[in-house]
Simulated scan of single mutants.
Amino acid sequence: MLKFENTRVSYDGKALALDDINLVVEQGEFVGIIGSSGSGKSTLLKTINLLVRPSSGKIYFDGKDITKLNNKELRSLRRNIGFVFQDYNLVDRSLVLDNVLIGRLGYKSSFKSFFGIFTDEEYESATTALKQVGLGEKIFERADQLSGGQKQRVAIAKTLCQRPKIILADEPVASLDISTSQTVMDYFKKVNEKKNMTILINLHDVNLAKKYCHRIVALRKGKIIFDGKAGDLSDEILKTIYD
């Protein structure tokens, strides 16, 4: 489904944020990406929807080299890639329902996007997505009235409403307490298992990665230094990752 082939990223033409990445992710995998700050975790995710473009190498999505896409093809690609951010990326003054409907804008004309014109089916899809993350009763509340954990679940619902093939999550629980983090991770796990949704998630907390993810990829200075089952991530390997 997703393949990195000798992918490199440099922001200044000198230092490599990603250094010769070779990685294959299959449909339905739940992959945790770990590593210290500056290891390349966020850059790795952002190359998948070309928020960051590789300096060299290739990235394949559903068998197509996405590094060669034109603007129209890139817009189509991004419909299939959901992105959940650490800071929720919601419009605080808008209703929860309206925030979730933003996930459908990639399918709209400029006219319909500007005036917020959605079909009954899309309203139903947004409502269903909110119920799936346990927020059916919050539909008509403003986003700024929610807790941090609830906001992140709205962000997940927005991504579900988009109906992507893959979800990327960049440190989505970094600003949440332990209990709330586990609640949010439970919903990611549910989405993965119930919908066979491919998920790549950057995590600062190694224990969360080992608990929820089937597979863990560890980065250090832009290189992959571990790629395997969560149960194979030993203390000795962790010392190598974080030393």
Score class of each variant (00 low, 15 high):
Q27T: 14
R75N: 15
S76F: 14
V9E: 04
G231C: 08
K210I: 13
A218C: 01
G28R: 07
S125G: 11
G228D: 10
R142T: 12
I237V: 15
V84Q: 00
L200E: 00
I224F: 06
I102W: 02
R53Y: 12
F188Q: 00
G38Q: 10
R153W: 08
Q162L: 10
A143M: 07
L69K: 06
A15G: 01
K68Y: 02
L168V: 03
V31W: 01
K3T: 13
I199C: 01
L105M: 15
L18P: 01
D177P: 09
L105H: 12
N71I: 14
K58V: 08
N22V: 10
I241V: 15
L50E: 04
A209Q: 04
G82W: 00
A155Y: 08
I33S: 00
D144A: 03
Q27E: 15
L101C: 03
R163K: 15
F61N: 03
K229E: 14
L44F: 10
Y123F: 15
E5W: 10
L176I: 06
G63M: 10
K229H: 13
V133D: 03
Y242G: 00
S10D: 06
N192W: 04
Y107C: 06
S39K: 03
A126W: 05
Y212P: 08
S37M: 09
E193S: 14
L97H: 07
V9C: 02
D186N: 14
D62W: 08
G13V: 10
G116L: 05
D12V: 06
I48A: 09
Q86G: 10
A15M: 13
K138I: 05
G106V: 10
A169K: 08
I166F: 06
N70D: 15
N71K: 14
R104I: 09
D120P: 12
A129I: 08
R93E: 13
G116V: 10
G116F: 07
P172W: 02
T47Q: 07
Y88F: 15
L23A: 11
D19R: 04
S36P: 11
L16H: 12
I156D: 00
R79N: 14
Y187W: 12
K210A: 04
S109R: 09
Y88G: 01
R220A: 05
R220W: 00
V206Y: 02
N22T: 09
V52C: 05
Q132F: 14
T127Y: 12
I48P: 00
V25A: 07
L200W: 02
E26R: 15
K72L: 13
E137M: 12
G222H: 07
L16Q: 11
S181H: 01
F140E: 10
L135H: 03
Y11P: 03
Q150M: 11
G103K: 02
D227N: 15
I59Q: 01
Q182M: 13
D186W: 02
K194E: 15
G103V: 04
S36L: 11
P172M: 09
I237C: 09
S37P: 10
L233Y: 12
I48M: 14
I59P: 06
Y11N: 07
V9G: 01
G13P: 08
E26P: 01
G228M: 08
E121M: 08
I166S: 08
A17D: 01
V173D: 00
